[in-house]
Design a protein around this nucleic acid. Structure first.
Lengths: 213, 213
DNA sequence: ACCTGAACACCGTTCAAGT
DNA sequence: ACCTGAACACCGTTCAAGT
């Protein structure tokens, strides 16, 4: 803590005490943000943290495991932001739409991190990282819970909640991915599409009962 | 053509005459299909085609350029399949939904190829590959054209056609991506979601005039 | 336990040299 | 023009050895 700042070049402390796993993960996140997923190398992370190239293997089985941890952290952050958006905006229809906005905003603000989560770098089917599946399911559950609340007060259709949630997920995921990919006209292309999607989705999933009103 | 099959190991012909670019591209596609994008190496492609490791640089500036060509080819194939689906199914509302199904089917049938197109491996903004942008725009145009036809006969809303097309694109893209990623319950998860999305989309973009009918 | 340096088998890319 | 082998600077991963 109170050591000289550039101790990384001259490792006068033989051991990296404290939470090395956490330090490696933070450095990986910073590198991914700055240089993208493909720019991430284990050697550079070690060097940046001020540790040998192989020290990382004490905390992660391999590069995939590190990326898996990065993805896991992403799903956790995403869930927290979704729940916060829902809670802070009245937990009603407006809150649901705010949550959708928060989803797209997370992806657009952290494009490389989002790609680690959904770009095929980690396999959610794989049982080797149970935490990943748990966190991914948790983020999805935030959507399901909100939708179930709207169903209870009769403002959206009474379809299978999980299936409807998957549909809403696909919409925000699609909007976010196209935005990240640069497939939408700049500037404001994502926001414009997100606003239009919100509108169309409202028509699409509103309950038949409340439609004519 | 009429040469011994495994000439690749012993290059008795000093030069690879014919369309080497085409051969390299085909081999890249096959490798991507079999081993994914990350499993693609230039050295292996050269070896498989029976050519030196550096021969590839005569036809592609670097690995990115090769992937860009792969993506370009993907957009072209996608456009052809979309147009075929639209043409062969009456060019009406049913045809539009068939087209959506064809989109998801292409992605699910060629997941790795689809990832090269949308996984951030190539940059559509970059002007270095004008063909890529052209083909991507062409595939999108197939969607716009179909939607415009539906608008003309009054069966969908009269909103900005390009914006509505982007929305529909986001939906099918989102469904396809979640399916490819293994985020949907197997088996039949993609088909179930695609069917539900089709239904909800119908409600969402139908014109107000034809809604009560 | 945790960390290290050396070593292994790869990779993309460059370049002088061949036909 | 088109192709080649050798070389360069990387990379993930392993492993015997240090504290």
């Amino acid at each position: 803590m109170a050591r000289p700042a550039r101790a990384a070049t001259k490792p006068n402390r033989p051991y990296h005490h404290g939470n090395l796993r956490r330090a490696l993960l933070d450095e990986a996140l910073a590198t991914i943000r700055a240089e993208g997923v493909t720019g991430l190398t284990l050697r550079e992370i070690g060097a940046r943290v001020g540790v040998s190239r192989t020290a990382l293997y004490r905390h992660f089985a391999d590069k995939r495991a590190l990326l898996s941890a990065v993805a896991t952290e992403g799903f956790r952050t995403l869930r927290l932001q979704l729940v916060a958006a829902w809670d802070e905006s009245g937990r009603g229809r407006a809150g649901f739409e705010t949550m959708g906005g928060a989803y797209v905003r997370f992806a657009v603000a952290n494009p490389s991190h989002y790609r680690v989560m959904f770009g095929g770098f980690v396999d959610p089917e794989q049982a080797c990282e149970p935490e990943l599946a748990t966190e991914a399911a948790g983020a999805f559950q935030a959507l399901v819970d909100a939708l179930a609340a709207l169903q209870r007060d009769g403002s959206v259709r009474g379809d299978d909640t999980a299936l409807m949630a998957r549909f809403v997920w696909a919409v925000v995921h699609g909007v976010a991915m196209l935005g990240i990919d640069g497939q939408l006209p700049q500037p404001g292309g994502v926001e414009e599409l997100a606003a239009y999607a919100r509108e169309r989705l409202r028509t699409g999933i509103t309950s038949d009962a409340s439609q004519p009103a």
